[in-house]
């Protein structure tokens, strides 16, 4: 459970009558409990891919399956958790109320689940801020609340669109560790968009490097680092090797693009 497979998915946008191919024949697989990272130049279609997996957008062609089910089925069964780039908390709700929101929407009375928001608040380290309004939290705290909200229905697949893009380095590293800890506890399958090569290697089992125009997979890098991960591994040859390979791939693309022009 938690298997994500994307099979030759393409997406064409119609911008003022002009057809723009955002993604072309993307295929990728994530096994149950695996952590995948998507990295690539701006505008190559990373967010678009994530939104198609979450059934926010339909693909133009190709198919996506989550545990063998269509994304729309997975969405209706609440098997998908989504973390947006900005936390997207509702400003009129407190932290606890924001995290409870998905439960209200499911509207089933399950006493076990009613305890979950408080446990998740503890898990993301927001104890004591249950009653705070989002505007009273720092950016990192808001993002942690958003992660807690995405986990409250115990999804099988967690999609994260540059979740820590707006954070400073230190907070970002702390959040990375926390997300890894949550992943270890919940055994969730995760697909995360990031612009940071280090972050991708540190977090992921498998990195999908995308190229732009049209968006396609340029390289898949397997990261053979042990779990649990720690910052000490960053000097590991396996780590630096993976970083170099991703960087090389991104740089080659840039060089190609420069020749194109």
């Amino acid at each position: 459970m938690g298997r994500l497979s994307i099979d030759r998915v393409s997406k064409v946008f119609d911008i003022d009558g002009r057809q723009v191919q955002a993604l072309k024949e993307i295929s990728l697989e994530l096994e149950d409990g695996q952590f995948g990272a998507l990295i690539g130049p701006s505008g190559c279609g990373k967010s678009t891919l994530l939104r198609m997996v979450a059934d926010i957008l339909p693909p133009t062609s190709g198919s996506i399956s989550i545990d063998g089910a269509h994304p729309s089925q997975a969405r209706k069964d609440h098997r998908i958790g989504f973390v947006f780039q900005d936390a997207t908390l509702l400003p009129w709700r407190t932290v606890l109320e924001n995290i409870r929101l998905p439960l209200e929407i499911v509207a089933e009375r399950d006493p076990d689940r009613e305890k979950l928001p408080r446990e998740l608040i503890e898990l993301v380290g927001l104890s004591g801020f249950e009653k705070a309004k989002p505007s009273q939290l720092s950016g990192g705290m808001q993002q942690r609340a958003a992660i807690a909200r995405s986990l409250v229905l115990s999804p099988r697949v967690l999609l994260l669109d540059e979740p820590f893009g707006a954070l400073d380095d230190i907070t970002r590293s702390r959040m990375n560790l926390e997300l890894l800890r949550i992943r270890a506890e919940t055994k969730i399958t995760a697909l995360m968009v990031t612009h940071s090569i280090q972050e991708a290697v540190f977090m992921a089992d498998r990195i999908f490097v995308l190229a732009a125009r049209p968006g396609r997979i340029a390289d898949v890098v397997e990261v053979g680092l042990d779990r649990p991960r720690s910052f000490a591994q960053m000097s590991d040859p396996a780590f630096t090797g993976a970083v170099d390979r991703v960087r090389q791939c991104l740089f080659d693309q840039q060089a190609m693009a420069a020749i194109d022009v």
Partner: peptide, 28 residues
């Protein structure tokens, strides 16, 4: 907000829930 709308989509909220829990409070 567009992102909030997508959040409710991912949560598979019904149109009525969308109205009461998202659109109406943001419209206040």
């Amino acid at each position: 907000e567009r992102n909030a709308g997508e959040l409710f989509l991912v949560l598979a909220a019904t149109p009525a829930q969308r109205f009461w829990k998202l659109a109406l409070p943001s419209a206040l």
